[in-house]
Amino acid sequence: MTTRWLTSDEQRAWRAYIAATHLLEDALDRQLQQDAGMPHLYYQVLSVLSESEGRKMRMTDLAEALKITRSRLTYAVTRLEKDGLLRREECEWDKRGTVAALTDEGMEVLERMAPGHVAMVRQAIFDHLAPQQVEQLEEISGVIARALQGDVAAVGDVPWRRRSSGPCS
């Protein structure tokens, strides 16, 4: 089997993508650490829960939505639970399952953090893009996400924005 090496154009695009994603994640982590003393992942956990039905989500579904391992999620949830920002509950429909539930305090913290986070995202990305480029960014990101998921997601479906049919489904 022969290796399909990247073309010069592909290599430049790849390196630009890697640099941008690393710089963005670092900037978001720095901003959230400075404003709230937590990494970007913890903000993402709170955000996804805030948009879920009943502000709850089964841990396995939450890990899938965030595209992280269950062990990494468990570590984050333990810290957020210790800080009173969420709590774990038994799943009513499946006693083997555990649900992460956003507390009122967690929602308040998220609401305080959101303006700074959105400002950073806007400053880092959207203030530099034309409307057509925003559409292209969404399209390209969707294509990559679907390819990495084995093309199981429907066209236009953004996997990290899916909502479960209930907190234990």
Rank of each mutant, 00 (worst) to 15 (best):
E138G: 11
E25M: 09
R146L: 12
Y75V: 12
G166N: 02
Q44R: 12
D104F: 03
C168R: 04
E53W: 11
T103N: 02
A19T: 13
H128C: 05
R146H: 10
G116P: 04
L137T: 06
T69N: 12
S71E: 10
V118T: 08
G106V: 00
A27K: 01
I125E: 07
Y17V: 06
V121Q: 00
A101H: 08
A20G: 06
M38Q: 10
A36G: 14
L80R: 01
L66A: 07
S47L: 14
D151P: 02
W14R: 15
Y43H: 03
Y75E: 13
D83L: 11
K95C: 05
P115Y: 03
E138C: 11
D29N: 15
V77N: 00
A19P: 00
D94I: 09
Q149A: 15
Y42N: 03
A153V: 03
A147V: 08
A63G: 11
L41A: 01
Y75F: 04
L66N: 12
R112H: 13
M1F: 15
H117T: 10
E10A: 15
A119S: 08
K56H: 05
S165D: 14
P39S: 07
V109W: 00
D35V: 05
V109A: 01
G142D: 04
G166K: 01
T60Q: 09
K67V: 04
A124Y: 15
R12G: 08
S141M: 14
A130H: 09
K82N: 15
W14P: 08
A36Y: 01
L6R: 14
A65I: 08
A19G: 10
C91E: 03
E105Q: 03
L73Y: 05
V134R: 13
G37L: 00
V118Y: 04
Y75M: 09
L62Q: 02
T74E: 06
A119N: 12
E51G: 15
L32Q: 03
E89T: 05
S164C: 13
E90N: 07
V143I: 14
R146A: 07
R96V: 06
P159N: 10
Y43W: 11
V155L: 15
T69I: 10
D83M: 07
G84S: 11
D9T: 09
H117W: 07
D127R: 11
R87H: 04
V109D: 00
A36W: 01
L49C: 09
L32E: 01
L102A: 06
R79Q: 09
V109N: 02
T3A: 08
R112G: 01
C91A: 15
Q123T: 10
E89Y: 06
M59T: 10
L46V: 02
R30D: 12
V152L: 08
D9V: 09
E64Y: 03
E135V: 08
E25G: 07
T2L: 10
I125W: 14
A101I: 03
I140W: 11
M38V: 05
P115H: 04
